[in-house]
Write a protein that binds this DNA or RNA. Structure first.
Lengths: 341, 341
DNA sequence: GTTAGCAGTCGAGAATATTGAGTGCTAAAC
DNA sequence: GTTTAGCACTCAATATTCTCGACTGCTAAC
């Protein structure tokens, strides 16, 4: 459908617009990229590309700007080369090397690094609790009336919670709790901590409600727990020319401030590959003026969290995708937390 | 120095400016507050108040706007009555009642509530680790090569960390660790976890470096740990007319995004009372166009965290102070976490 | 299919005019 | 001495007009 030259010109226009944030004129294309043809020829091609929906004009006599369809084409078919420097590779390696104490920590470091290199606002969320397999449960007595409950899952995730009681707990009771909970739950998915578990423990242990109830309550809270959202470089976006529009800037802050929306964004990506949502492609219409790019921090089929970038539609997709790909690969290699020992 | 009428007029101007964000004219004062005197009289008083530095003009023929000194006078001497409704009191009571699982959680709930009622951006930070007294230390074996280290302090703060090893750990080793660590550290301030502790443990236990080193490292990290900043209602500020200025909006996002700055803000308040910093009064010049109001979540002399509001200089001090006072009082009463049991 | 050339469009920015919300000051009234 | 009416003056904000020039689209020639 599109001949080689038109494809090139489309790519050049998107590149140029990403670089300058100004509508791109035929003259600029000739000057910087296509010295062999005249601006009139470029204009003809541009008119064609506009008719096909890849380009738009901001007003009748302006240069061209990519449409959502134009960006999509650019991302899907025109971007081929990686866009990541040796320095950036070295920087990422250094950052991700072994320093994290936990999966969540590693995801955070990756999120920060991603923001540092791309200069966009990045965001991440830890692994989903649901679906994880319980490897071990442990209750630890702290003082006389406080327990810490700890769950270790197959992905290496460790979750803990404090449980308080109105009466004293004995060491023997703790041992018994450990025995029964592990007996029932080891190897089971974490969702098995539910009402039926409470019944089971009641039946087997016959402890007072005052002891069993708080434990079950807290453990349930633990697995339903809202994920912690980690945000980095919110201020960086404000340097971008699109945020000169107060309206847009306000929308952006609103988005970042709305937890549910952020979780939505981070939970849409299912595949392990990089997901790209450009403008209207986002499910949520609040995001119609922005682009979102996400990927899963995962090892094998284990979901260890999701990391994303939120920025203007005029995003440096090339850089963003290249850097994400590399970080994703490194996270996979750097699999410290999935070792079975 | 200021007669009664001038004080009233100053208060009225500040009130009016807080309410409308528009420079206040003599006519408005007569219309809304001082129906007995003429606008010319008000103008004379305003000129006087300006000469004394309490008021400013935005340009030669504009109405008056409070200066920093004016706000300071307003806050220190002119605000007397509480400004909190029964509904608000009920709402706060409901929110703070018993629902938190930990001090940090309670602080977060209070922070959110404060933002909901005042419609300003609020921020908080958990209790400072330093200075806390260790009540108990516990190591728990998870799997064969992973420990969880737990510290419980006198304020009820529970901190935990994961420690990973390259070799297996036995249950006996864990028992011994528990014994020696508690023996050495119970009743001591948390800073005692340092190099000399490492020596002591080495001397007494003679375990391999491979075991001792990671433990000490992680425990040290735990106490140095950067506090988690909790931010609520960043978007609310953007509805305010002062944030029409892109410059100011950008500064604001920058401030919220800079952890060090936020910690600075939250760490300046020493006394238990409410601290108010208006514009230039802030130590950091990034904050010169904003006001910061903070108070400590504390019980007795125990610091359990700090909560603050960041907003425009034209802040509703009356409401903010009243609500903070009430929340502060409630947090004190609601002292679930300081019970010795 | 390509290109030169030119008319036409329209946003951006500068220059100017208009309005009206304020003040400060003066002189008279209290 | 304090208060007030009255009026001249100031100045931001807004609207109006003008000019400029960066573009395109189209036509006709190559």
């Amino acid at each position: 459908m599109l001949d080689e030259r038109k494809r090139n010109i489309l790519k050049e226009i998107v590149d140029e617009y990403i670089a300058t944030a100004e509508p791109v004129s035929s003259a600029v294309i000739v000057e910087k990229y296509e010295s062999n043809i005249s601006s009139a020829t470029v204009r003809n091609d541009m008119a064609e590309l506009e008719k096909l929906g890849y380009l738009e004009k901001t007003h009748a006599s302006s240069g061209r700007v990519p449409s959502a369809k134009g960006y999509r084409m650019y991302v899907d078919e025109l971007l081929k080369d990686d866009n990541i420097s040796l320095e950036e590779i070295k920087y990422i390696q250094e950052k991700l090397e072994n320093k994290a104490d936990s999966i969540e920590e590693l995801t955070k470091i990756a999120t920060t690094t991603l923001s540092e290199i791309t200069h966009y606002t990045t965001v991440s969320v830890g692994p989903k609790t649901s679906g994880q397999i319980i490897e071990e449960i442990k209750f630890v007595l702290l003082g006389n009336r406080m327990l810490m409950g700890i769950i270790v899952t197959d992905t290496g995730l460790v979750k803990e919670t404090i449980i308080k009681f109105d009466e004293d707990i004995t060491a023997e009771q703790v041992d018994t709790l450990n025995y029964y909970f592990n007996n029932k739950l080891q190897g089971e998915p974490i969702e098995k901590i539910d009402a039926s578990l409470e019944e089971y423990i009641f039946r087997e242990l016959k402890y007072s409600v005052k002891i069993i109830r708080p434990i079950i309550e807290q453990m349930k809270k633990l697995i339903q727990e809202e994920e912690n959202i980690y945000l980095e470089g919110a201020n960086k976006s404000f340097e971008l020319p699109e945020f000169k529009s107060l309206e847009l800037a306000k929308n952006f802050v609103n988005i970042l401030d709305t937890k549910e929306l952020m979780l939505d964004i981070l939970n849409t990506g299912f595949a392990e590959d990089i997901q790209i949502y450009i403008g209207d492609e986002n499910d949520n219409k609040e995001l119609k003026d922005f682009s979102v790019v996400t990927f899963k921090h995962s090892v094998g089929d284990k979901d260890l969290g999701t990391i994303g970038i939120i920025g203007p539609k005029r995003m440096n997709y090339s850089k963003v995708i290249s850097v994400m790909k590399y970080i994703s690969k490194k996270l996979n290699e750097n699999d410290n937390f999935n070792k079975k020992d």
